[in-house]
């Protein structure tokens, strides 16, 4: 073979490639592959959903909010601009804009409506995310990967429910009691309710549902015809927020 500079470069290139392949071969050669499993107690469903029974909701009760925000290390900055919230209370006219009218029953006007991520069947936030930092799981939960998020905030512009929050600043100093079992977030990433995937994975109900003493929050599998949530949906008139947008929200409200 002619020993030219060109050939030398070619051969060195191939050799370098070989070095790159080494770890791959190494990995393939391992005969004892460790196994990966979902948790043994994990609760599974084809479609998770929630019903909020506003009739059972008690004014000034914050049990679900506190439980959620403590479990997930949600900070409290004390200002509305930077505010982060996963589940919170809105009045009827804000939860269902356009539905309210002047002669509303006083009870409806006063009632707290718990709002959270709707875990849409057709989530706009997922559609717009440029790095797949948010996606819909096979059980319908709209999940968030804080390791992936680049902080472009397309999801915030896309969500028609205002359910997404952004870490405008480092949240750590503003978390009163940190739950060491769950990570905090870092500045510059978006976050929201995840229907407590980390609790479902070990067989626990979402923190808000568990915390509600009045049974106002019901969580369950829509795909099981006999599940309590299906029974509630069968026997009650329910509303969803902004159904006209075609997002198919999966949080239902009994008014």
């Amino acid at each position: 073979m002619e020993r030219s500079r060109r050939n030398f470069l070619k051969i060195s290139g191939i050799c370098l490639l070989g070095l790159g392949v080494k770890p791959v071969v190494h990995a393939l050669a391992k005969n004892e592959q460790p196994q990966i499993l979902p948790g043994p107690d994990a609760m599974t469903a084809k479609r998770w959903a929630m019903v909020v029974d506003t009739k059972k909701c008690v004014d000034d009760c914050r049990d679900c909010i506190d439980a959620c925000h403590q479990t997930h290390n949600v900070p409290d900055f004390g200002n509305p601009k930077d505010e982060i919230k996963w589940i919170w209370h809105e009045y009827y006219g804000h939860a269902f804009p356009g539905q309210e009218h002047e002669y509303e029953a006083e009870e409806i006007e006063r009632k707290p409506f718990m709002v959270l991520c709707n875990h849409c069947d057709n989530p706009p936030c997922v559609r717009v995310c440029p790095v797949q930092a948010t996606w819909k799981r096979s059980d319908g939960i709209v999940m968030m990967d804080y390791h992936r998020c680049i902080g472009c905030r397309c999801c915030m512009a896309a969500c028609p429910y205002g359910s997404r929050s952004f870490n405008w600043r480092d949240p750590r100093p503003y978390i009163k009691e940190t739950n060491p079992e769950y990570p905090t977030r870092t500045k510059g990433v978006a976050e929201k309710c995840t229907f407590c995937v980390e609790r479902l994975a070990v067989g626990l109900m979402p923190a808000c549902v568990e915390a509600c003493k009045h049974g106002a929050l019901v969580f369950g599998a829509l795909d099981e015809p006999d599940s309590p949530i299906r029974e509630i949906l069968r026997s009650n008139f329910t509303l969803r927020r902004k159904p006209e947008l075609g997002t198919r929200p999966q949080v239902y409200y009994i008014v």
Partner: peptide
Amino acid sequence: VLADLGNIKRMFFLLLYPTPNSIM
């Protein structure tokens, strides 16, 4: 766009995880 990103260190994720359904 870069000035607006919350996490500039991860900007190359845009190339690393190409996402055709995203307009961004």
